[in-house]
Write a protein that binds this DNA or RNA. Structure first.
Lengths: 240, 240
DNA sequence: CGCTGCTTTGAAGCCCTTCAAACCAGGTGG
DNA sequence: CCACCTGGTTTGAAGGGCTTCAAAGCAGCG
């Protein structure tokens, strides 16, 4: 059930059998959420965090004129809102983009983990810092990368993140999003996303069709995007 | 010495005298850094975090073509890199924009805090999550706000953050940055920042001259920016 | 088989960039 | 005490990347 979450954690640190057991004990029952469903809104007091088992989930912020910016995509194995444990309420919304399976971890259970499992606490603190690192990389994309670079970069990021949890190969993965949703991730209009996808296709770098990404030239795509995966913290520099 | 740091913490949570003492005991000597000095580079293993006492510090990321995006500004009272405690190395650089006074907190000392002061641990975890919230708001600015809105928003944010630590009044604060640095925060060119600053001045919303911000119309400025300070988590919804 | 939501394409326009140069203030040295 | 230098600011003109508006094409589905 939480296998993908464990895969994600173990890609960055050792997780003992004890710790694994603590995690398993902390989560509730599996819940199915429909697509396009906003299940966290800004300012609402929260008493649990949401672990994604399946499907794609987005954090987003709205402007008062209705414009929307997605600030991070979440996939199987991710907590969508682990930061609500310390923040209590969030500054953004969280919604499903596809139908999704989730489990909830009560903040009470998280509090117990922080009392009894100091290493696991640091692993989860690390987890929220990894989300922040992804935010920073998106700031760089939104601020300085061209449209074609932004799209290429997003496809590179998702390939790495999905690969960790066994949902991507070197060349393929499912990403069942519309071009309008991509536009909301990338600070672009749907029309322009469409045009740039065509460019990427014609440059034989990557194809995005019916919710599936096919990478035609991984190195070329990474070069186009100026993609450096180190912000995903998969390299362990030194064991503690 | 760390008074502004305590002001920042106490704006969001209670800090006991014991905890205050623990913080004071954890920091080393005051160090002066010159302006324009990059003191943290990506990938470098770190054994301490940096608390800013004075001056302005920036986190930034570079593209290989030399373009730079500042991902967050830090002011007196902020940790510039508290997240390095769990991350060990960073995905970005950190530099002084002005001469700065800092103190270092060894990760060893932070580790002891996490063992002996569970509440203070959560306060610091909260602190890194607050940085992430600022990153998200900047993603929204970079992705969806116009140039004039971005600048207005940054001035609103800095007014609130500096006010907390006693460095801003309702209408004035020092922000000794060049227009080129603002451009690197906002994903714009220096030329365009200049033009938009003129617009804001002529609209009688805000003036930025010789490193000082004068807000002429706070409500108008906030309306222009679609500024909502709740992402800075100054509202305590419920005591724990 | 027509509806619905998504994708694709075209044409026009604007926001911001690029390139270039003038302006200005503060600091330095003759 | 002014001439000079330097880094930052300001302004102009031209261009381009992305948006806007509009409509056609297309695939899945009841």
């Amino acid at each position: 059930m939480i296998e993908k979450h464990l895969l994600k954690l173990r890609a960055r640190d050792e997780i003992s059998a004890d710790e694994e057991q603590a995690i398993r004990a902390a989560v509730g029952e599996t819940v199915m959420l429909p697509a396009e469903h906003t299940f966290i809104t800004p300012g609402k007091l929260l008493d649990h965090s949401t672990l994604v088992l399946d499907g794609i989930v987005a954090r987003y912020k709205d402007l008062s004129d209705g414009q929307r910016q997605i600030t991070e995509l979440h996939v199987a194995g991710d907590f969508a809102d682990l930061h609500s444990f310390t923040l209590q309420y969030l500054d953004h919304s969280v919604m499903t983009l596809t139908p999704a399976r989730i489990v909830r971890m009560p903040h009470k259970a998280l509090a117990e983990i922080t009392e009894r499992y100091p290493h696991l606490t640091r692993v989860y603190w690390f987890g929220t810092n990894l989300d922040a690192a992804i935010h920073r990389e998106w700031e760089l994309s939104l601020g300085r990368r061209s449209a074609i670079q932004r799209i290429a970069h997003l496809f590179c990021e998702m390939q790495v993140r999905l690969r960790i949890v066994g949902l991507a190969s070197e060349r393929h993965y499912d990403l069942p999003l519309t071009q309008a949703v991509l536009a909301e991730c990338l600070g672009l209009t749907p029309v322009h996303v469409n045009r740039v996808l065509k460019e990427l296709r014609e440059a034989a770098l990557v194809e995005f069709r019916s919710g599936r990404v096919t990478i035609l030239d991984l190195l070329g795509l990474r070069a186009m995007a100026d993609f450096d995966p180190s912000y995903l913290y998969l390299e362990r520099k030194r064991p503690r």
